[in-house]
Amino acid sequence: MKRTAFFALACVLLAAAVVVSCGQRDVNPMIEVSTPPHFPPMIYDLNKNPVTQAGFELGRALFYEGQLSRDGTVSCGFCHQQSAGFTHHGHDLSHGVDDRLGKRNALPIQNLAFYRDFMWDGGIHDLDLQPLAPIENPVEMDESMPNILEKLRKHPHYPRMFERAFGTPEITGERLLKALSQFMVTMISANSRYDQYLRGETQLTADELRGLQLFKQKGCDHCHSGGLFTDQTYRNNGLSLAFNQDVGRYEITLNEQDKYKFRVPSLRNVEVTRPYMHDGRFRNLEMVLDHYSEGMEDIPTLDPLFKRTDGKRGIPMTAEEKRLIIAFLKTLTDETFLHDKRFSEPE
């Protein structure tokens, strides 16, 4: 009799365990992050940080959390606004807490799972470690990680969200960073009209097609190459040093050859990420192309691609050619991505 009771109890417990574990699986399903067909291979290792629904939601909440800054006012989303391709709309240089001004223009957050390193100077080589830089930068969020973790531990919702994402309510720096990465690696922009054209789903206009042809013919795609529209190198494109002597990549490598070099930025969503260049000196794409055709300064580390046989610098382009190239660049705007509710601030 006793033995039967024990057996029954064991069965009940086992059944409960099965239900609970199945339940958990339902509560926190995996999110598949796949590589778009014409993209380079993914660099972020999803095996070390598999993306789950709860991890993604936590990452999203943290991305829009002002408590990640010293005075609670500046979240990641403050300078990385979705409608502006996750850049700081209209700001040449971004400002952080107390309106302190940074020295560089906020880069877009998109397709980061495919990048080898981050920032205009490439100083960070692991997406998980990337958020530490703006968090601790005095002119950005000006906060320390131990403080943030303390604030989140006392928060009414975060312990529960960490538990849903990672199994226990413990809030650690590693978990916070992994959750932010889970959010960021899902932010893939690969559904612009150009992508749809590549997939045979839509047609480009005659001007846009002519622009695409010129984009290749003029060699823009030499650096802005592949599905990401960047070869992920650091180059000097002849920006005048008159008002800004930022040495760029040199700060990271301490190699004289890298002075004044900056990341070749992606051109995806370039229409909405104005202003342009590492210091946001150009307000619109017309100014950018004018710089490429006749604005380049002769700086020792100027990229050889821009040195012409006639001793001049830059890429010769007529006004009409520029107009067409810009028409093509605008096909890289991904309205789906820019309005995807999954990436918007949680209500």
Binding site: M119, G123, I124, H125, D126, L129, L132, A133, I135, E136, N137, S144, M145, P146, L149, T172, G173, E174, L176, L177, E251, I252
Partner: peptide, 18 residues
């Protein structure tokens, strides 16, 4: 070694240049 467990005053990690 935990870069998320350092106060600014005692920090031993460069966030901007990993």
């Amino acid at each position: 070694l935990n870069p998320t467990d350092m106060s600014r005053e005692e920090g031993m990690y460069w966030t901007w240049n990993s």
